[in-house]
Amino acid sequence: MGLARFASVQIINALIVLLVVLFIVTALFTNLADQEKKAAIEEAVAQMKPPASLKTKAEIQKWKEEQKQILYEREGLTKPYWQRVFGYMVDALELNFGEANHMASFKTQSKKVSRIILEALPNTIILFTTATLIVIAIGIYLGMKAARAAGKLLDRTISFLAMLSASLPMWWVGMLMLLLFSYKLNWFPSNAIDVYVAIRHASNILVELKDWIYYMTLPLITVVLVSFGGFAYVTRNIVLGVMNEDFVMAARAKGLPERKVIYGHVLRTASPPIVTMSALSIIGSLGGAIITETVFGWPGMGRVYWVAIQENETAVILGETFVTVFLFVATIALLNFIYGLLDPRVKVG
């Protein structure tokens, strides 16, 4: 029962945050979205053919003005400001962001903004979930090892790597990887967006999978390379803190094998903060990761941002920001929930 209550509190919390963010962003950009709509309407009206009964220029002008007003009315542009904000909020919640001017989605070449984003989203999720899982695995392994040999070479190396990766732009490392592995050594493709061309010729699912891996390897390595040091360092600090606790000494005194002490007692206790830290590291790397995608041309959210910025597609940028914020908040809520599962004290408190 406690768990259900805890879960619902988390969900309600996340919803509140989401609504507040949504409200702030829409309130800020309502005027801009209005301007875009008005411009589109004006263009449409200018193209309209007035009925033949109208003769003088003034009459035609008046008719066009009326048409414009009708369209304004239909699009809800004549409503008061707060109602317009509310309208845009509902649109955003329904993923109704309108159409792009020139941009098209990666797969089906659709111009609908929601389609553009929804086709890019899975690619981003695939790339970064895979990367994050690898980072967590390497990070926990190295972090535990470093904590057990604090002050030794491995520990120092990890500390330095953590400092370095806090200051390295991930996307720049991506540029270097391309320079080295794509153009110098020619091992990997330079533009990952070609994956869609490649899989068109794939005869079966295995070949397709191979194509995806071939195009994903370089961005994946980049993300892992820049992230694992920081994660290992955080794990090391948490584990080191737990290892000084009395119960660990007690477990050792009982004569438990070291493996059991580390993985059964230390890691079990250290896991809630490690989960929190993984949450923060994933979220922290999201920004850099979005830009990293653009370097490799990976057909994900970052790539959509890049193209939308170059081509001045405001509707796409707006829609994409909403979706990213939504994912971000949802991820935090989910991780809070997992944290609660791992640490029984949180549920009660």
């Binding site: 945050v17 950009f29 920001t321 914020v325 971000f328 935090i332």
Partner: peptide
């Protein structure tokens, strides 16, 4: 504090800067 903490900076910054 929680609300601001849960907002991703870069996407919002991109949106603001693009406009």
């Amino acid at each position: 504090d929680q609300v601001v903490y849960s907002m991703p900076v870069l996407p919002l910054l991109i949106l603001m800067a693009a406009i």
